[in-house]
Write a protein that binds this DNA or RNA. Structure first.
Lengths: 223, 223
DNA sequence: GAGGCTTTCAAGCGATCAATTGAACGAGCA
DNA sequence: TGCTCGTTCAATTGATCGCTTGAAAGCCTC
């Protein structure tokens, strides 16, 4: 009976343990975009397949991710949207309480993006009025699994070859995987170098979806 | 530049690591009630003083707690209310995703409290109408640092000697440190054994305060 | 200042963790 | 039935964790 307190806290600690490794948090961010096979996750994260598999199993035992088989692949995905929320709160507390995080963010921000990022509500409003173009800088697989309505999908590698797809007189709002994903920082920097007005969306796609805002799925015209 | 992703996730993982031990989570729950000295925390948690100190320093480096000196004691407290929120989300996800947690909770619940717990809004309303007595089952130190308005403070040890302080015709709503604190479960069980109508408040004091609901500080008449 | 608290440090123990390597599993397909 | 290929297991390495023990460090009070 008195052991209940210890036991239940040990259970909660299982979740903490699953969140106690930077590589696992990175995998969670990828999974927040779309479900992925072990191999895909290993490739995008730069980890070995065996190592990736072990991390995924650890998180599965902690209830953060789930897996299903499709053909010869096993597809992992987040166990639910509450995991996105947990990640969000973790990052919020980290940014507020850890000076190192604030410094790292400030360094990236001042180096590349002196302007305030755009909030979701502001983007919705200005997008409705046709004042902005929305740019998704993630890889096509993640884009196809879900993206902001009307967004154009261009990776960093493609961006400068297809600037003509962006109306030159409209501000561009770029987003990617999350609030700390560097892709949108880099995209904004490059767009500005080419004379565009460009800003970042503060949140990434998973947070947008978590907030219940409208999304689209399916691929976009590519070349 | 490309190391940013790794670095920032490693920073977030520092928080996860701080949350990866059941004893630390227990300490955080105590700190959510009121600031405490190392010695007090060691006593209430059953850990050695040295061990407690080490856990606290670990959490301080992770930005979860802060410390100040008062006289010959060093008082630790939560770094902010966002830590309470983080704990809340962690527990919510754990209860939703870990079968073990659900089982443990169900066992305690069915063994002692078959009724649904009371929500904060319901308590506020019924308390305003004078329909219920509010009972705080935490130790006096925690009660004095902050409690629900109009609450009576009786520990489990005192409860049965002072049943006369509770109007016999009003339902009693008991609360303690948090949603998984056993004190209020036990209090409800004992009150019912004495013929009272009694239920638990679903949340504990820290969650009540985090929600911005009214609180009181200061001690109560004791004997 | 000296003594007496509380707290922290430092060393050491067994246990666990992250990552590598190579082998084993197992579902799909010929 | 075999073969293939994605995934997992098993064993290993070095590093870190949790806790204990005993000593050191601060700081208050006298």
């Amino acid at each position: 009976m008195s052991g209940f307190k210890q036991d239940i806290n040990d259970q909660f600690a299982r979740l903490g343990k699953a969140l106690s490794n930077g590589r696992r948090l990175e995998l969670l961010e990828y999974l927040a975009q779309s479900e992925r096979s072990v191999e895909q996750l290993a490739r995008v994260s730069g980890l070995s397949v065996a190592n990736t598999s072990q991390h995924l199993q650890q998180m599965r035992q902690a209830g953060l991710v789930s897996a299903r088989r499709e053909g010869k692949h096993i597809l992992y995905s987040l166990a639910g949207e509450d995991v996105v929320q947990l990640l969000g709160v973790l990052r919020t507390v980290a940014e507020r309480r850890l000076a190192e995080v604030r410094e790292m963010v400030a360094k990236v921000l001042t180096a590349r993006d002196s302007l305030e990022p755009v909030q979701a509500a502001e983007l919705l409003e200005r997008s409705r009025l046709g004042l902005v173009s929305v740019l998704d800088v993630r890889p096509p697989e993640e884009f196809e699994a879900g993206h902001l309505p009307g967004a154009l999908n261009l990776t960093l590698a493609e961006l400068e070859r297809h600037l003509d797809r962006l109306p030159p007189d409209r501000e561009v709002i770029a987003y990617c995987r999350g609030p700390y994903c560097v892709l949108s920082f880099e995209a904004v920097a490059r767009l500005r170098a080419h004379g565009f007005q460009a800003r970042r969306l503060e949140q990434g796609y998973p947070e947008w979806k978590l907030a219940g805002l409208p999304t689209q799925t399916g691929d976009a015209p590519r070349d």
